[in-house]
Amino acid sequence: MADTEKKKVIKPIKNFSMEEYISSGHRACQGCAEVLAVRHVLKAIGPDMIMAMATGCMEIISSPYPLTSWNIPWIHVAFENAAAVASGVESGLKALRRKGRIPNKDVTIVAMGGDGGTTDIGFQALSGMIERGHKVIYVCVDNEAYMNTGIQRSSSTPIGATTTTSPTGKLEPEGKSTWKKDMVAIAAAHGIPYTATACPTFFTDLQKKIQKAKEVNGPSYIHILSVCPTGWRVPPNKAIEYGQLAVDTGVFPLYEVENGAWKLNRKPKELKPVSDYFKGQGRYRHLDERFTQQIQDKVTERWNKLVELCSEKPEK
């Protein structure tokens, strides 16, 4: 059998950088899909970039002085200001370039924060950055809670998930009782040229979106769902699979808004039930059938609205 079988050969992947801009030796947890998202974001951009990062998991795992995992120029100042620091880097380079003090070369400026640093404490700075029109790609790596400080709820924690500050109890049997903040819609409401959701499970889609954002003449916002085995209480080896389920159940749809035009990037023929996604996640272990159904109804409703938005043609 073996000699008749045609031997498979490793062929290069198209449009895929083999460089690693965040080097091994970083201290992310086993199976961290967030650092995987970062890996793909960096590969999509390449070396001519500068990153401003918010305090959080990615900052802590990558920069214990005197060590750094970064192979790109990188700055961390505080928790809530990645967007503002990136605005400053962009403005500084703009002035220096205009005055001929640095080469007239395009350098991509990226701001990156977790869901806490983006949807909560860094929300204002992000809104300011978008409104002022800085040419910055803002990437939110969303693991749906304050994982770095020990799994506290953020406004990006999904409904029904337990965290250390949204526990289940007799009076609050559902865990977190409010819906996840819809950041891409908020970014879109600013009239931002480009905004999208992404997930490292769909790495080609993710890289394509980052490259699209890079070409935009203005701000862009990419919201990346990043499975956190530690915080979600799932086995590390299933980090990729849960990303797939989040998308295929419609809990976290992949879509983009380009100059006001909404577009679904992955449209399953039929959505899987949300219970497929909840199953096996420790943070959802307490959910009963009734509450699961309530969430299912809302997910379906939101999905239908999204499909509708994405089918509308923008006026010419």
Binding site: V85, G88, V89
Partner: peptide, 16 residues
Amino acid sequence: EHSAMSVCCGSSAAGA
């Protein structure tokens, strides 16, 4: 002002 000082950190770090 929080962003004012943050922008200043970014621009100074960029050499401006």
